Computed example of a mutant assay.
Amino acid sequence: MTPSLRTERLVLEPYTPEDEEDFVALFQDPRVSRWMGDGTASEAADRALFGRIFTNVYARELFDVWAVRRGGVLVGHAEIKPTEVVGGHEIVYALAPSAWGSGLGTEVAQALVAHGFGALGLGEVHATVAAPNEASLVLLGRIGFEYVRDIEEDDGGITRVLVRRRPAAAGGASPAR
């Protein structure tokens, strides 16, 4: 079951059915969706995606997905999931434009990494970021992610693959992978 996570200013908690309108509004905003998957989807597709969070992801406990809230208001989306593209777990996060530029993205990303290293026991956590998304690339670099490789997408775009490895345990032992 997806646990709740807390940062200094945010609560990451499982979605509730009442979050559907805010979820759809977030994913329908082209300033947000341009960086998510294949870009803006139809409203019906985003509603179906929201439904699958409950019927597939939560019901089968596939991976952790959160509503990101500040002061009780949904301001973003976050997840950590296994993916074949990176051969491990990837963090995914999106914030509403009203939350940009205030350090909340850093809080979300750090919470996801801490969850991956702590609760999930991962030795490394990945992120995939569209090459033009400089804000996300800078943010991830600031919190210790390193460039691994580029993926050329079918549309000719470039996706950067980044990794953050868990620090070695005291005494120099390497973490399990």
Rank of each mutant, 00 (worst) to 15 (best):
T40W: 05
T40G: 05
T40Y: 01
A41G: 06
S42Q: 07
S42Y: 01
E43G: 08
E43V: 10
E43H: 12
E43K: 02
A44I: 11
A44V: 09
D46A: 00
D46P: 03
D46Y: 07
D46V: 11
D46E: 15
D46C: 10
R47K: 14
R47P: 08
R47E: 09
R47D: 03
A48C: 10
A48D: 14
A48V: 10
A48W: 05
L49H: 12
L49Y: 14
L49W: 10
F50E: 15
F50H: 06
G51H: 08
G51M: 03
R52I: 01
R52T: 05
I53Y: 00
I53E: 03
I53T: 06
I53H: 12
F54R: 09
F54S: 13
F54K: 12
F54Y: 12
T55M: 14
T55D: 14
N56Y: 08
N56D: 15
N56W: 11
V57S: 01
V57P: 03
V57G: 04
V57R: 04
Y58L: 08
Y58T: 06
R60T: 11
E61W: 12
E61K: 08
E61L: 11
L62A: 12
F63G: 03
F63L: 00
F63E: 02
D64V: 07
D64R: 02
V65K: 03
V65W: 05
W66V: 03
W66L: 01
A67L: 13
A67C: 10
A67G: 06
R69S: 02
R69M: 04
R69G: 04
R69E: 02
R70G: 12
R70P: 02
R70S: 15
G72V: 09
V73C: 08
V73N: 11
L74W: 13
L74S: 10
L74H: 12
V75R: 08
V75Q: 04
V75T: 06
V75H: 04
V75K: 00
V75G: 00
G76T: 03
G76M: 14
H77L: 08
H77K: 09
H77S: 12
A78S: 08
E79G: 05
I80A: 02
I80M: 00
I80L: 08
I80V: 13
I80C: 11
K81C: 04
K81N: 14
K81Y: 13
K81T: 15
P82D: 02
T83F: 09
E84G: 15
